Amino acid sequence: MSFQQHRIALAGDTPGTSTDLYSYTAGPDSADTKVYLQAALHADEQPGTMALHHLLPMLRDADAAGTLRARFVVFPSVNPLGLANRSLRHHIGRYDTESGVNYNRRWPDLYPAIADTIAGRLTADPAANVAVIRAAVAAWIDAQRPGSAAQQLRMLTLKAAHDADLVLDLHCDDESLMHIFTSPDLMPGLQDLADWMGVAATLTAEDSGGGSFDEVLPALYRKAQRANADHPIPLATAAATLEYRGQADSFDHFGKTDAAALFGFLAGRGLIAADAGQPPQTAPGPTALEATEVLRVDRPGLLAYRVELGEHVTAGQPVADLIAMDGPEAFLARTPILAGTDGFILSRSSAKYVRRGTSIAKIVGTQIIPSRAGGYLLED
């Protein structure tokens, strides 16, 4: 039996402080495949933690039964620093309150950091090349000297994930249907994950512009492939961000359902020697993230939505009205907020008072939106 809890103390940035980071491992150390799962990198997004709360006992029991065929590393709440970020009874778990940096942005671009190290060491053996790259990444991480608790956290979790074959980063949206973010070259390879989750959309981008955690390892291998075209380098890590509905959806019944789906996905891949259960229905195929409109308001006001999640809209159709809160018609005037593309409503804002520039909906379409092509594709 190898199921174990691990606790690492992160040195605090002020005198007398530290924070405990918990993780679990399960499965044989000698397994050919490593699976890394983490939740609540945005610490105010708890549905993923609820799912892992229910998945962990399933992994523990499978480990005791000797049916795990992969090595599992699980961080049920990967950002304890963000759990402490509160102000006036409000949880600010998305951003480091010292630097203002989004916890899921600005993760390191690894290939430039290791390019010189692997130069001249690649061969005609794909597996050996992956091992060389992973060893170089591990050495680079070990050489870092984090200057803050947040940087310690990044290096610790990146070290835990760097040699994984499958990396799943569990998040949620504001008010949303289930969806996935991943790289286009990882599809249709992750279609089974989309099916088991029952997602409404799989949104793909090679580079969304923010340096998100799920893009770090695929980008490493992609850049290595392009820079060393004469050597075989597989895309050795399949990574995705799983968006488990909305922030208010941390319910026990959802967690049980989501854990069962994750278990079924893993069993269906042969990573757990267990019955995967009833095969899921096929989810929609991937859609370029550039075809998803992030609909924003150009003035402050009070939102009155006209559409529900999942509802199809056409370009020019009102998605919501914005009630004026200042000016000559304050609290009388309503300005329609119009969809800019054909598609369906994937997410909405739970806060109905909005300031200028606020994102109030994501509309998943099928046609690339010119203003989105090659730009920053995330909401913040």
Results as ranks from 00 to 15, higher is better:
168 L>A: 07
114 I>W: 03
185 D>T: 12
111 Y>G: 01
192 D>W: 04
101 V>F: 01
119 A>V: 04
206 E>Q: 15
180 I>N: 02
161 A>Y: 13
197 M>V: 12
206 E>M: 13
138 A>F: 06
102 N>H: 04
135 A>D: 14
184 P>Q: 07
152 Q>V: 07
144 Q>T: 15
104 N>L: 03
123 T>P: 07
166 L>T: 03
173 D>T: 07
100 G>P: 00
162 H>D: 10
175 E>Y: 14
135 A>V: 10
104 N>S: 01
113 A>R: 15
133 I>E: 00
136 A>Y: 05
129 N>S: 02
151 Q>H: 05
204 T>Y: 07
119 A>Y: 02
151 Q>L: 13
140 W>F: 11
157 T>Q: 09
126 P>S: 14
186 L>H: 15
138 A>S: 14
189 G>L: 00
193 L>Q: 05
158 L>E: 06
132 V>C: 04
112 P>N: 08
113 A>L: 07
114 I>A: 05
123 T>G: 08
117 T>M: 06
131 A>I: 00
185 D>Y: 07
178 M>W: 14
159 K>G: 12
186 L>I: 13
126 P>G: 10
142 D>L: 11
138 A>Y: 06
160 A>K: 07
101 V>I: 09
161 A>Q: 10
194 A>M: 11
139 A>D: 15
105 R>T: 00
129 N>K: 06
157 T>M: 05
132 V>A: 06
144 Q>P: 07
199 V>E: 08
200 A>S: 15
182 T>Q: 10
118 I>N: 07
116 D>A: 15
182 T>F: 11
184 P>K: 14
134 R>Q: 14
190 L>V: 06
142 D>C: 09
130 V>G: 02
188 P>G: 10
119 A>N: 13
170 L>P: 09
199 V>Q: 06
125 D>Q: 02
122 L>G: 14
179 H>P: 12
167 V>H: 10
161 A>W: 13
120 G>A: 12
154 R>S: 00
99 S>D: 01
107 W>T: 02
105 R>M: 09
104 N>Y: 01
136 A>F: 11
125 D>S: 08
194 A>R: 09
155 M>I: 06
158 L>N: 08
110 L>C: 00
105 R>W: 01
142 D>M: 09
155 M>L: 14
191 Q>V: 09
174 D>G: 10
